[in-house]
């Protein structure tokens, strides 16, 4: 179930991000770390939203699975 939800989230975000799936020519002095940093920022924003979502779902899960 968890895997399915993850796949779904993944597909939706991938489709969204694919909407700007073209590479533009890079010029000299391009900072090679930029891409990874931008990707991390996007991921952090998504995970940040999950944080609150998890709090809500956490109340329900706690009873079922005492480890989580």
């Amino acid at each position: 179930m968890k895997t399915k939800a993850r796949t779904l989230c993944w597909t939706i975000s991938a489709l969204f991000l694919l909407s700007f799936a073209t590479e533009r020519p890079a010029a000299a002095y391009a900072d090679p770390g930029t891409g990874a940093m931008l990707w991390q920022l996007l991921a952090a924003a998504a995970v940040g939203a999950m944080f609150y979502l998890r709090k809500v779902t956490g109340w329900f899960r706690k009873k079922k699975d005492p480890e989580k």
């Binding site: 991938a14 799936a21 990874a36 931008l38």
Partner: peptide
């Protein structure tokens, strides 16, 4: 493909659109 998207392609696309 999933193996490349988050490690290779998205960082490449994002960086090429970002003001240097």
């Amino acid at each position: 493909s999933p193996g490349f998207l988050s490690l290779v392609s998205l960082p490449t696309w994002l960086a090429s659109r970002h003001s240097q």
